[in-house]
Write a protein that binds this DNA or RNA. Structure first.
Length: 508
RNA sequence: CGGGCUGUAGCGCAGUCUGGUAGCGCGCUUCGUUCGGGACGAAGAGGCCGGAGGUUCGAAUCCUCUCAGCCCGACCA
């Protein structure tokens, strides 16, 4: 068979959505399950999620949070308590109505024993957690409550895509209670900053911190903030959200406390979350036409060693060389953890094996064979750039951590450059339309990007814009963020007065 | 829930219009030759043609009904 030009078919330029699916398949990260809209996360994908969890969990703990666990099921009446919340989630809830199955007389089973009150499989846990918090909070001395939970949630989405939108997904949801609005807002922003820190410094995915417009708010929130990233097809991905819930859920669940003056007050709550969608973002930020490219700080393995042992007489010596190299490498630390090394001893042809690891995105691929033993050397290839270099073994071991950090830094730099290249400041509707209109309407090519422009419209204007051009406001950047411009101007769409520029893009 | 399409080997597909013994590529197994960037040859294994009814001497193929999936809309972390 002739060697394919790229490991992944089609390429990003040819068919981006199909490329995305193929990268996941080639890296063996996940696959669709027999259950509609639900994925099976395979070990390579799940280890990545574990690494994401481990780092974020530490960040949450470092900011004073603790973990707990609340039920999968929510009584229907709880969900009904907050009007906006119901409105937002009712259409995508899985409902449990029966508690038992009985023989249907045709060799099958049918539901029996209806529940007195249906249970909802949690789409998010504000209501059930709020109910518990109402019991736990009586005095200002009980505050703040700073709890996170790692869980699965279910949202019955119409259309699903691996990692980006699945009916069941894994996430963390932080739920906090505070005595004052100021403190709750500080928490909301603090956790947004934690997400941004994680996205940039671990995922090597630059993000814009900003506030969502009223139309895009979390159902039941007073303010919703997000981190928004640009994928390689220049579409935006909302990668995490942090909500200031005001007193809405406190009212609904009765979270009240007595302050120092003995007055009864409603508490202020927040919630914030990121999900397995981050993995989708990571893929679409870094993967190339040869498959996944993992940022070293989150990679399940940092280095894979491929022993070159075609001749039986040298096989033992090669394996011993690889084993001792692995030991030396694993004695090194990178980003607070051991350098993870795998030796691939499978009886496969060299090229086949190598491409397998290229597609899995391992940062460094090392070949070691008889010639290397003679020279006490290694042959090292970088996944992100494809750059190959022969090194002495000692030099490689001594520099492995800095090489990994170099890859991490370069990946972030490239992602930032990509975002900068595909972001435009626009001032006329004409330019705006041209920017977001593909040349080929039938099969849109990769086009557009982020537009930084003035906005003074309302929710209805946003809806119209979305329908006309499939473009939405991603967020209103916070001060100091990429794209922030606090100068007032004229709305590009309505001509009304605008307080500042916002980020527009097509999105996932 | 509307509109379009597809269900045939583990995966990707042909065969369906015009009914007549179930095919191809990849993958898998075994053997041989190869081997520092996706090898080649030979021999094999593997199917309730999504399901149920019908028409027919005979159905993957025609008809009816069903189930599942994909794409496009409405909805979304």
């Amino acid at each position: 068979m002739a060697k394919a030009k790229t490991a992944i078919t089609p390429t990003r330029a040819e068919d981006y959505p199909e490329w995305y699916q193929q990268v996941i398949k080639a890296a063996d990260m996940a696959e669709n399950s027999p259950v509609r809209g639900c994925m099976v996360i395979k070990p390579w994908g799940y280890t990545l999620w574990e690494n994401i969890q481990r780092v974020l969990d530490q960040m949450f703990k470092d900011t004073g949070h603790v973990n707990a666990y609340f039920p999968l099921f929510i009584p229907k009446s709880y969900l009904e308590k907050e009007a906006a919340h119901v409105e937002g989630f009712a259409k995508e809830c899985a409902v449990v109505t029966h508690s038992r199955l009985v023989d249907d007389g045709n060799g099958g089973l049918k539901p029996d024993s209806p529940l007195e009150e249906p249970l909802i499989v949690r789409p998010t846990s504000e209501t059930i957690i709020g109910e518990m918090y109402a019991k736990w909070v009586q005095s200002y001395r009980d505050l703040p409550i700073l709890i996170n939970q790692w869980a699965n949630v279910v949202r019955w989405e119409m259309r699903t895509r691996l990692f980006l939108r699945t009916a069941e997904f894994l996430w963390q949801e932080g739920h906090t209670v505070h005595a004052t609005a100021e403190e709750a807002m500080e928490e909301t922003r603090k956790m947004l900053a934690v997400y941004a820190d994680f996205a940039e410094n671990y995922m090597a995915m630059p993000v814009i911190c900003g506030e969502k417009t009223p139309g895009e708010r979390f159902p039941g929130a007073d303010h919703t903030f997000s981190i928004e990233a640009m994928m390689q097809d220049r579409k935006a991905l909302q990668a995490g959200t942090s909500h200031f819930l005001g007193q809405n859920f406190s009212k609904a669940s009765g979270i009240k406390f007595q302050n120092e003056q003995g007055e009864e007050q409603l508490a202020w709550t927040t919630s914030w979350g990121v999900s397995t969608r981050l993995i989708g973002g990571l893929i679409m930020t870094h993967a190339d036409d040869d498959g996944l490219v993992l940022p070293p700080r989150l990679a399940p393995s940092h280095v894979v060693i491929l022993p070159v042992m075609h001749k039986p007489e040298t096989a033992d010596a090669v394996l011993a060389y690889c084993e001792s190299l692995k030991q030396e490498l694993q004695a090194q630390t990178f980003a607070g953890r051991r350098v993870e090394v795998e030796i691939d001893k499978r009886d496969l042809r060299g090229g086949e094996k190598r491409w397998g690891w290229v597609k899995k995105g391992v940062p460094l691929i090392v070949e070691a064979g008889p010639r290397d033993i003679e020279n006490n050397a290694v042959f090292v290839a970088r996944r992100d750039t494809g750059e190959k270099v022969g090194l002495s073994r000692a030099e490689f071991v001594a520099t492995v951590a800095e090489r990994l950090q170099g890859i991490q830094d370069d990946m972030l730099a490239r992602a930032k450059a990509h975002r900068a290249e595909n972001t435009k400041t626009l001032d006329t509707l004409e330019d705006f339309k041209a920017y977001f209109t593909p040349e080929n309407a039938e099969r849109p090519e990769i086009h557009g990007g982020f537009a930084i422009a003035h906005w003074g419209g309302d929710a209805e204007d946003e809806d119209r814009l979305a329908k006309e051009m499939k473009v939405t406001i991603r967020n209103i950047p916070l001060e100091g963020q990429f794209g922030y411009d606090g100068e007032p101007g004229t709305c590009i769409y309505t001509g009304k007065l605008s307080a500042q520029r916002v980020i527009f893009a097509k999105s996932y």
